[in-house]
Nucleic acid binder design. Sequence first.
RNA 1: GGGUCGGUAGCUCAGCUGGUAGAGCAGCGGACUUUUAAUCCGCCGGUCGUGGGUUCGAUCCCCGCCCGACUCACCA
Length: 573
Amino acid sequence: MGRGDVMLERNDLMEQRLAKIAAVVEAGQQAYPNDFKPSHTGAELIAGLADQLAPHPIERATGTAAVRMVGRVIAINRKGKVGFLRIRDRSASAVIAARQAANVAREAANMAPRDSDTSTYQVFFRRNEDEDLFDALLKSGQSLDVGDIVGCIGLPFRTQTGEPSLWATSLDAEGNPLSGTAAGEPCVRILTKSIRSLPEKFHGLTDKQTRYRQRYVDLIVNDDVRATFERRAHIIAAIRAFFHTRDYLEVETPMMHSIVGGATARPFATHHNALGIPLFLRVAPELHLKRLVVGGLERVFEINRNFRNEGIDLQHNPEFTMLEFYEAYATYTDLMVLIEQLFSGLAQQLHGTTDLVWGDANDPDAQQQISMAAPFARISVYEGIQRWGGLDAEQLHDAALLRAKLAEQGITLPAATPVGKLQMALFETVAEPHLIQPTFVTDFPVEVSPLSRKKDSDPRLTDRFEMYMAGFEIANAFSELNDSVDQHERFQAQSLAKAGGDVEAMDMDMDYIRALEYGLPPTAGCGIGIDRLVMVLTNNQSIREVILFPLLRPEQRRSESGDAATPAALTEG
RNA sequence: GGGUCGGUAGCUCAGCUGGUAGAGCAGCGGACUUUUAAUCCGCCGGUCGUGGGUUCGAUCCCCGCCCGACUCACCA
């Protein structure tokens, strides 16, 4: 291996398995075949396929159709002249559900329930079926390893302990190939050899760094991780259905913006070579979505990524998924009702109840109940400061007093900070941690709401709310500012703030002003952090548990340091 | 960026302020014809994150660095 080559990790276990692949090739066989088509899943086997045949002894009438199943070998258990393969396929979660349902039936019949905690199905392979194959796979040489992907042919049956299983065989009682198999087709076949060994079966994979960096391993061995991401997919599908039934149009707007806007946040900067212009990854789709409402798409929503060049912690990932929706002729109070319907409906669909558990399942003291039942609590920013900040209605407009209160929390803000920002800072500090139950926080100061409509009753405030639960922000919504003159002034204030060093301030967007000049109907819009919503609905306390590939520092590999760091490939693009 | 804790076999973890490392699982060899974290016998497997320092001698003590978890600050 020459200098600059990427070193492959190799250890003895891997060399052993590579040798097994070499042996297959040497025997003139395909090491990576792709011609095995499954006919059934593990869930189908568990859910009753096994009862279609006599439980035992196995029935193999001429013409019986073979069942073909695939999956990854999770455990091998050889006992003399029989072997058991535990296999997992895509139906893993459904296997658990099917097994639980089957156990209910067993209990009703006064039989002992079995295996309610495993997402695998079982293949039973008896040496008598094919001695050469059995020995080649499971005995001397042991070409089959935990982690391999296999294709199995056989007939469903129940073992002596009653577990639905696949009896590996390709022949009927007459010794003829089962219907649906090719002559001489082996009953167990390695489709893909795994070279790396899987984590230990009992303790599994727990190291968070490895789990996030090698999510593929995490998904193989941790059922609950797979379940979380299946739920995430269901949640997003349910959200789409919710808006489709309300006559919303799903749209996609640009991820690359030449002007930063729609939220107060630091952007990622990039550059387009052909146009020779700077571009920013979007921090929010808001201004484009409202342009669409101007264009007559009166109800639109988008589910897509936002990018914010800010810190990473339990609630923040630099790229995150945002749902934004806009409805013409609605107000922010209408959206509260909509969100209540959406959230309580999601909880019902996912859990069959609006009562959610929040907190570490292993620590009863840390557990809390979150009720998604409508209506949600409502509190204004001012009320929150009064209730948890110890200020009365007059005092919360006293900048010096607000600063003193913030100082008590160890927070100091620049001298030019407007009162509205001080109020919000204090609210976030003293009130946020109390907002475990779903709560609409209403009436935000105008200084922190550059795109919101001013309150008719008090121009210092806006028709805006944020929804909190589990102690953090989930949603942000307001009646949209559709007065182009007012919007122009707000943008100017943002531009001034930016010139003054506020890296989160928005840019002036004259095209957006032009759009408002054509006329944005009275509209309300809302943004919902999907990752955080999934956290609450799946009881995960870290955003990294609900994002398949969270951002991590690039992996440092000792063997690749030095002159391999700048290969030509990096400069070609 | 600050604080706390951590990095030892493929995986999960032990290792007594110092004498160059252990277990279980996985792997390999063997026994076992219905196992469920199977069991039993034997074997293989380690630059103890990394670079220095102290010492006759460092996984252990000291310093720097890298990586991570938690937490605080900033932020959605």
